Simulated assay, not measured.
Amino acid sequence: MIPIKLPNNKIVDIHYQGICSYFSIGELNSISHWLEPYNLTFERLIKAKPDELREIKKEIKSGQYANWESNEIPELFKDTYSSFSKFSKNQYCGANLVANLQIKVCPYCNRTFINNFDKDGKIKRSSQIDHFFPKGMSKYPYLALSFYNLIPSCYSCNHSKGTKKIDKSPYELSSSDDALHFNIKFPKENGGYNLDNVELTIDIEEEFNMNVKHLGLKSLYKNHNDVAREIWLKGKAYDESRIKELLTTFPDLFESEKEIAQIIMGNYLEEEDLGKRPLSKLTRDIAREVKFIK
């Protein structure tokens, strides 16, 4: 799991204005009336950060709504999300949210690209959008459009999670190391560094146990022993002196040792770049373990 870092805070305002465009003035007035007993405004509901969403969720208990609209407004939120999730050329939609976040890789698993793409003049999402707090009518439909409740993700993570509870949102991570860490082992009794004796393990911070369990990350990463082995072997084969030698030998090709290290590993190695390419967190952790990078 890797953090979602906002490129700038304006995209939250853009989201709020975009969501407002889906409602008539009468609908917005009805929503405000529905939120009034909870001391909430529509703007606060849409812009609420993860901790605030938890408090709102406690205040508005599922199915125990305070005024005459009962299920009418929650259903309106849920139905409006259906429109938002479809591509619209002239209206803010899910594809715009993904583009504005500049997310290229699923933040839950860091295994799959989730770029938007153009098809026949329409912008398509290769991502799905997970509701961190589920939007179902028996859950939290009134959070269906809240910015920080919408997590662009891959098909696998969205469907593995479903309506299950996980503990931490990618928006709450300051560093990928706060969630988990990959390790690789080659049991001594087998000898050699072949694929038959690679053991890729994950050290998980306690508060992320439910994330790993419900997203199936341990099982998913068992498929990447070959990648972990390659990273480990390249880290052993290329030490600091060989990287310096490459920089000296090919001064016109490479700008820095950092660039050479990235090319050798075939992936990004800096924390701020982990969202640019799949398996970058795995690559960084194994590269650090073998002391290829600090």
Score class of each variant (00 low, 15 high):
Ala95Gly: 08
Leu53Glu: 05
Leu253Asp: 14
Pro74Cys: 08
Gly216Leu: 00
Asp13Thr: 14
Cys157Ser: 00
Met1Thr: 03
Phe254Asn: 12
Gly191Tyr: 02
Pro187Ile: 06
Cys106Trp: 03
Lys61Pro: 06
Phe292His: 02
Asp79Arg: 06
Ile151Trp: 02
Ser82Asn: 14
Glu75Asp: 15
Met210Glu: 15
Leu143Gly: 00
Ser24Lys: 05
Leu143Thr: 04
Gly121Glu: 07
Glu207Val: 11
Asn100Arg: 09
Met137Leu: 07
Ala48Thr: 11
Thr249Val: 13
Glu245Ser: 15
Val105Glu: 06
Asp130Ser: 05
Ile4Tyr: 02
Trp68Asn: 13
Asp239Ile: 13
Lys294Glu: 14
Asn90Phe: 11
Ser174Leu: 09
Asn96Val: 09
Asp196Tyr: 15
Glu289Tyr: 01
Glu245Gly: 14
Ile202Tyr: 01
His214Pro: 01
Ile184Gln: 00
Gln262Ile: 09
Lys10Val: 11
Leu282Cys: 07
Ile46Leu: 12
Lys124Arg: 08
Lys89Asn: 11
Tyr155Val: 10
Leu145Trp: 01
Asn211Asp: 08
Asp167Gln: 15
Tyr92Met: 11
Ser82His: 12
Leu253Trp: 12
Val290Ile: 10
Ser88Arg: 09
Lys244His: 15
Leu45Gln: 04
Glu55Val: 14
Lys218Asn: 12
Lys218Ile: 08
Ser85Phe: 12
Lys139Ala: 05
Gly162Met: 02
Ile231Trp: 05
Leu215Val: 06
Thr112Val: 13
Arg54Thr: 15
Ile103His: 04
Glu36Ala: 13
Glu27Gln: 12
Asp239Pro: 05
Ile264Gln: 04
Asp196Arg: 13
Ala261Met: 07
Cys106Gln: 08
His131Lys: 12
Ile60Ser: 01
Lys49Cys: 07
Ser70Cys: 14
Ser146Val: 05
Gly94Lys: 03
Pro251Ser: 02
Val227Gly: 07
Ile4Asp: 00
Gly235Cys: 12
Leu195Pro: 04
Arg277Pro: 08
Pro152Ser: 04
Trp34Asp: 08
Tyr140Val: 05
Glu207Asp: 14
Leu195Ser: 15
Phe133Asp: 07
Leu195Lys: 13
His181Thr: 15
Ser156Ile: 08
